[in-house]
């Protein structure tokens, strides 16, 4: 009943709003504009009408696309979000119109278009996205690569692979995320290298991607633990812990003798997360000589967890 009332209110408001609009280009555009005002309203008193208005826009389907695509350049955050959400829900029929905006001069428009294309997930957008993945603007490169990951088609891998070495951290981050979605094993060594990335977003996303690769990434991570970069090895320990299992736990054991207390602590924590009691003995052995309070803190947790085993 309440829903019906809301829809009725939306229709009434649509009529009311339409009446004051001076010269709309055509009937469909006029309807889109009217619905859009309500669909993008942030006012709390119109909150119940927002969703029905958005649903009405989505229900218009292809007819709403040209006008909605025109609105991609809107700057007000709430309205921009509405544009995105509606076009994503309209789906594949919006892709041809969206592709035309990939050549827009406004870099924000291109970037937003990439995002929408990625979330729609239709493979007909891949070529267009690959084309802009080398754009001089990093926002566009990042969005294009992320979109290629969202679409999840192997045809996008080459562009993603290139982006793993981009000069901008946020692009590398998008590439790492996309790498974890495309699951091309050729990306693993790059992702392991990225555990030392200067940008935390890229670093942590590389770790998450490697966790998705699971056992396939174990040896590459294990090899990297001896590298000089402390951050890379430390995050490698954490990543191994998140991959888990006996093999990861065994690799981590070697790190218990590291001169760095932080490395030892993260290795013990990794073992804690591995859900494998294989390395428990090595941790117990370490407990007799360990002085660092942080390492001891995690040793205690490991011993507590595996005591019954």
């Amino acid at each position: 009943m309440k829903m019906s009332l809301n829809i009725l209110m939306v229709l009434l408001l649509t009529l009311e709003v339409s009446a004051v609009d001076a010269s709309p280009p055509n009937e469909a555009a006029r309807k889109v504009d009217s619905l859009f005002i309500i669909a993008s309203s942030g006012e709390i008193k119109y909150r119940d009408m927002v969703q029905p208005a958005q649903d009405s826009l989505v229900a218009m389907g292809e007819a709403a696309v040209p006008r909605m695509v025109e609105k991609i350049d809107i700057k007000i955050a709430r309205e921009a979000r509405t544009v995105r959400e509606v076009l994503i829900k309209i789906g594949a029929v919006a892709v041809p119109s969206l592709l035309t905006r990939l050549s827009d001069e406004d870099t924000e428009v291109v970037s937003k278009t990439c995002y929408i294309l990625g979330k729609i997930g239709d493979s007909s957008a891949i070529d267009g996205l690959v084309d802009v993945s080398g754009h001089s603007d990093w926002h566009i490169r990042s969005s294009a690569v992320a979109a290629l990951g969202d679409i999840g088609n192997e045809r996008g891998y080459e562009a993603v692979s290139r982006a793993l070495a981009d000069t901008v951290g946020l692009v590398r981050k998008s590439a790492a995320v996309a790498g974890g979605k495309l699951m091309n094993e050729a990306a693993v060594p790059h992702l392991v290298g990225m555990l030392a990335d200067d940008f935390y977003g890229a670093r942590m996303c590389a770790s998450e991607a490697l966790v998705k690769f699971g056992k396939k990434s174990l040896s590459a991570i294990g090899d990297s633990l001896v590298f000089e970069n402390e951050l890379q090895g430390n995050l490698g320990c954490t990543t191994l812990g998140l991959i888990g299992g006996d093999s990861a736990a065994v690799i981590l054991t070697a790190q218990l003798t590291s001169p760095s207390p932080m490395r030892r602590a993260l290795a013990v924590e990794g073992i804690l997360n591995c859900n494998s009691s294989l390395a428990c003995g090595a941790v117990e052995l370490l407990s007799s000589s360990e002085k660092d309070p942080l390492v001891l803190f995690y040793i205690e947790k490991v011993l507590e967890k595996y005591a019954s085993k």
Partner: peptide, 19 residues
């Protein structure tokens, strides 16, 4: 420094780009 290291972060991660 201590806490960020534990979280695989570093103090310089407390940073934003200007663009």
């Amino acid at each position: 420094e201590h806490l960020t290291a534990l979280l695989n972060l570093k103090p310089s991660d407390i940073h934003f780009r200007d663009d």
